[in-house]
């Protein structure tokens, strides 16, 4: 099981455009990738490729989230996804 913690960089938090960008990226991997607020139990983690789940997390700028995935390429996938979370898409 690969696991990474990321800090939300988007100034408006993880919703709308940032959530859509992230969900699309997570959906491109043939892996079950989950996301949860830091400290939440693993079995309450949600599908990272679901934009609705991401938005319902209500994660704001500076909040920490945990990404998890299992299988071949999981480490590379999570590294890439952490990078997306830690970019401020609203500043573009």
């Amino acid at each position: 099981m690969a696991e990474r913690t990321a800090t939300i960089a988007s100034s408006v938090g993880l919703h709308a455009r940032p959530a859509a960008i992230f969900a699309e990226a997570a959906g491109e991997y043939d892996l079950e990738i989950t996301i949860a607020a830091e400290g939440e139990p693993e079995d309450e983690a949600m599908d990272a490729s679901s934009v609705l789940s991401l938005m319902s997390l209500g994660a704001g700028q500076g909040d920490k989230v945990v990404l998890r995935a299992e299988g071949a390429g999981a480490d590379d996938a999570l590294d890439h996804l952490v990078q997306i979370l830690e970019t401020d898409h609203d500043a573009e």
Partner: peptide, 15 residues
């Protein structure tokens, strides 16, 4: 329209 399309195919919603 694009963001609505994304929600219409949302995996968690359908699950």
């Amino acid at each position: 329209l694009k963001s609505t399309a994304l929600m219409a195919g949302d995996k968690a919603l359908l699950k």
